[in-house]
Design a protein around this nucleic acid. Structure first.
Length: 811
DNA sequence: TCCCTACCGTGATG
DNA sequence: GTACATCACGGTAGGGA
């Protein structure tokens, strides 16, 4: 039988002491297909240089005899091959050892042990699906032409019979074919509970949203309910109803928001308590959870995607959202958020309340579904580029993505993969001193006109490629005198050069077509390029290289300092620079002359390093650093400035305006004042704006939500050495039996009182009280604007006092 | 008790 | 355990006068 097939989910199983890979996917006609492919588990024994032939033969003989019993399973070496390979860029001889079961690779590796002839044993620590794909297996989310035998129900231990699929095929050949688009069948879900805390509450309703399928399942009998509401007799039958609907809908992807951490574990817990089966898997099994800070819920045959995980791990850096709540993220990405519902009502609900609650619940699933549509092109492209199953791709962090990209491209270089660091290596890597990082130029505070900004494209990535910086190309040297790297290009810089090229290609393509696909591709390659520096400096990396990472920052710094000097030599005043960007005054030069300067600078840059025009700006402001010692010359603040684009848009960096741990009042005021000064060029008007806010604060005309300060709780309450206001607020919340957990954003405001510490005066938003006028003026309003006015030589307090004398203000 | 400062903690930049 | 270093700044904690 011949069939066109796209794999969506990967798994494996053992049959008669052999490993098989099980892929669930779709046929061209939309049938759900299970494909079974064989896989020969194996790993490498790398030989030392110049080992004698007879020693190799002895070693092979010894390896061939290994036999391991583990429980009921017996594992042995099937065969061995001696190959010419590369390891860390060097030519080696290596024995490829094929074994009966992947699970026993490590045990057999240990059995082989160390010897004078063995340099290393490798690739036994790569998971089976990754290894399968690395060795020519069916690639994720790509159409393949496969042929093989249809499995009858009782074939291979009944694997075909117990799966809820249209067809089960044991294949003998496979071939990647084309890039026809694929749209998965998606079902979004969301639950509402009586308590956020697992084990403390019940599930009140479950909502589902798919294409032409919208449902809210509940056990709350209610006279007034919408058509989409289906009422069950109790919580248990509601959960069973949920399982039935999921099976009937038969989605490729089941998708939630924070569902790894909340919805799925909650469902499992309630199902267990109520003794119902949560058998969502196509093999009739319940979701499997892996351990971790956040559990990971895997459903057999259906890809469970927690959108929050993907957004938090790779997508969030492009978002303006200050929190990653569904509401905020959805508002930004799809233009509509959740509905409002007052959860305090839960203890005392009438029919109207329930009616609203049903609608609220359904909206959550709808928003999740739409958000999925928005983010899916990125997950899909990442999956195809990284070549890992999308279950993993949607959860992995950038370091894993980089590493998986490397693993799946090693065969092109004949490379045997390096091992993961063991625990002790991770510890010693972490214990190392930090190395010097980026260069930041100290600006001279002031207001400037006509500013040009240049920046290096993929600065660190292009440095790594240009200077060939990687673990395998390091020759010698030390941190002080600098490391020397080989002139022969290593696989890491080679792959990175490709990534940077592909990024350019798809960026260009996107600029022409503006389609989602090239945008997602361009994004993915950009993220990979940017993460590659961090990867080499990450202690958990297989190809960790502190030498490469520290050389990257050192050489980047060297180049940007040289470029700054050249811009200065050309007669320009440099204002600022941070890592890969340089801002300077255009002076009387024309734009063409600036472009000529850019061209000349580029001519002399080494390798693939490239300087680009970021933008021309009308005006910009740099301010002084606060808290300098008395009588000390004022220092320009780094990472804190605002630039006005020609389009009129204001780029604000580092100021309190963009910091979520300042109250809205101070943030909005600061942003208005920056606008007044940069857009209107009117610092007098700015002073008026300030005066009005001060007056409003004094007369208590300020809305509570404008003075709320939000700070994230980053550790357990008892781990804090210094208990700041947000910790005090969190302790207060705990006393009131409100849920408090690490990672939460704590909200509070500062009330009147004598307490020495701010923490003694914090009030929760739900608490009635008077805000402390003095605190908000002295600790929020003034600090946010003082150093902006200082640029104009305006002393705010004096100016305000003066106005008072003139009768302009009554504060 | 007041004042100073080192350190803690968060969240920004790139 | 889950990419890197650099930076600003409020607030607390603790020592010295």
């Amino acid at each position: 039988m011949d069939i066109k097939f796209i794999p969506i989910d990967y798994d494996y199983f053992d049959f008669e002491d052999k490993n098989y890979i099980r892929l669930i996917g779709k046929s061209e006609s939309g049938k759900k297909i299970c494909v079974i492919d064989s896989f020969e588990a194996n790993f490498w024994v790398i030989l030392k240089d110049g080992v004698k032939k007879e020693n190799v033969d002895l070693l092979i003989e010894k390896i061939g005899k290994i036999n391991i019993k583990k429980g009921s399973r017996e594992s042995c070496v099937l065969r061995t091959e001696v190959c010419k390979k590369k390891y860390l860029g060097r030519d080696v001889s290596a024995i490829k050892v094929y074994v009966t079961n992947h699970k026993d690779c490590s045990a057999i590796t240990s059995e082989i042990g160390d010897s004078d002839d063995i340099m290393a044993r490798r690739e036994h620590d790569i998971n089976i699906v990754t290894k399968y794909i690395m060795e020519g297996g069916i690639k994720p989310m790509k159409w393949h032409s496969v042929s093989g035998d249809i499995l009858a129900e009782d074939d291979m231990g009944g694997i075909g019979g117990c799966l809820d699929v249209d067809l089960c095929l044991k294949i003998s050949t496979k071939k990647e074919i084309d890039d026809t688009p694929f749209s998965p069948k998606v079902l979004a879900y969301d639950i509402e509970t009586t308590s956020r805390e697992l084990g403390k509450g019940k599930i009140l309703m479950i909502s589902l949203w798919g294409e032409d399928f919208h449902k809210v399942l509940t056990w709350q009998d209610c006279s007034k309910k919408q058509d989409f509401v289906e009422c069950f007799s109790d919580e248990a039958s509601m959960i069973e109803g949920f399982v039935d609907y999921v099976k009937k809908y038969s989605p490729d992807i089941l998708c939630g928001y924070f569902s790894d951490g909340f919805d799925l574990p909650y469902l499992r817990e309630r199902a267990k308590k109520k003794k119902v089966k949560l058998d969502l898997g196509i093999d009739g099994k319940e979701p499997r959870f892996s351990r971790g800070i956040i559990p990971t819920g895997k459903i057999s045959g259906i890809v469970h995607i927690d959108l929050y995980r993907f957004i938090a791990a790779v997508y969030s850096q492009y978002l303006a959202s200050e929190t990653l709540s569904l509401n905020e993220v959805a508002s930004e990405l799809i233009g509509s958020g959740k509905e409002d519902f007052d959860f305090d009502l839960l203890n005392n609900m009438n029919d109207d309340h329930w009616y609203d609650f049903f609608s609220y619940s359904l909206k959550d699933s709808e928003v999740t579904y739409k958000l999925f549509g928005k983010v899916w092109p990125d997950i899909l492209e990442f999956t195809k580029i990284i070549k890992e199953p999308c279950f993993n791709v949607s959860r992995d962090r950038m370091a894993s993505h980089v590493e998986n990209y490397l693993l799946h491209n090693l065969s092109r270089f004949d490379e045997i993969a390096e091992k993961n660091p063991v625990h002790s290596e991770i510890l010693s890597r972490k214990a190392m001193d930090k190395f010097e990082g980026a260069f930041v130029y100290e600006p001279t505070p002031g207001l400037y006109e006509d500013i040009v900004m240049f920046d290096f494209t993929s600065m660190y990535g292009s440095v790594i490629v240009t200077y060939n910086l990687s673990k395998t190309t390091l020759v010698e040297g030390d941190l002080d005198s600098g490391y020397e790297f080989s002139s022969e290009l290593g696989f890491f810089p080679t792959l990175l050069a490709e990534i940077i090229d592909l990024r350019k290609k798809y960026k260009k393509e996107y600029n022409l077509s503006k389609d989602n696909l090239s945008k997602a591709r361009s994004n993915a390659y950009k993220l990979l390029a940017n993460a590659s520096y961090g990867y080499q400096g990450f202690y958990g990396a297989r190809y960790y290289s502190r030498e490469a990472a520290s050389s990257t920052t050192r050489l980047a710094k060297e180049n940007i300092l040289l470029t700054i000097d050249k811009i200065k030599d050309a007669g320009f005043k440099v204002l600022y620079s941070d890592t890969d960007s340089i801002a300077f005054l255009r002076g009387k030069k024309s734009r063409d002359e600036i472009m000529k300067l850019l061209f000349d600078l580029n001519k002399n840059l080494p390798g693939i390093m490239e300087l680009d025009l970021e933008d021309f700006f009308q005006r910009g402001i740099f301010v002084t650093k606060k808290g300098g010692k008395k009588n000390e010359a004022s220092v320009g603040a780094k990472k804190k400035y605002a630039l006005l684009q020609e389009s009129g848009k204001l780029n604000i960096r580092g100021f309190e305006t963009v910091r979520r741990d300042w109250c809205q009042l101070a943030r909005r005021l600061q942003s208005n004042i920056l606008k007044e000064i940069l857009v209107e060029g009117n610092e007098k008007k700015a002073l008026e704006v300030l005066r009005e806010v001060v007056s409003n604060v004094r007369s208590r005309e300020i809305d509570l939500r404008d003075i709320i300060i939000k700070t994230q709780l980053k550790k357990e309450l008892n781990e804090y050495a210094s208990k700041g206001p947000h910790v005090a607020a969190a302790i207060k919340m705990e006393k009131l039996k409100m849920p408090v957990s690490t990672g939460m954003i704590i909200e509070y405001y500062v009330g009147e009182g004598k307490g020495k510490k701010i923490g003694d005066r914090v009030l929760l938003p739900s608490e009635k009280g008077k805000y402390d006028i003095d605190y908000y003026l002295k600790n929020q309003i003034f600090p946010a604007v003082l150093n902006i006015f200082e640029v104009f030589g305006v002393n705010v307090e004096e100016a305000l006092a003066k106005q008072k004398q003139m009768g302009l203000g009554d504060f």
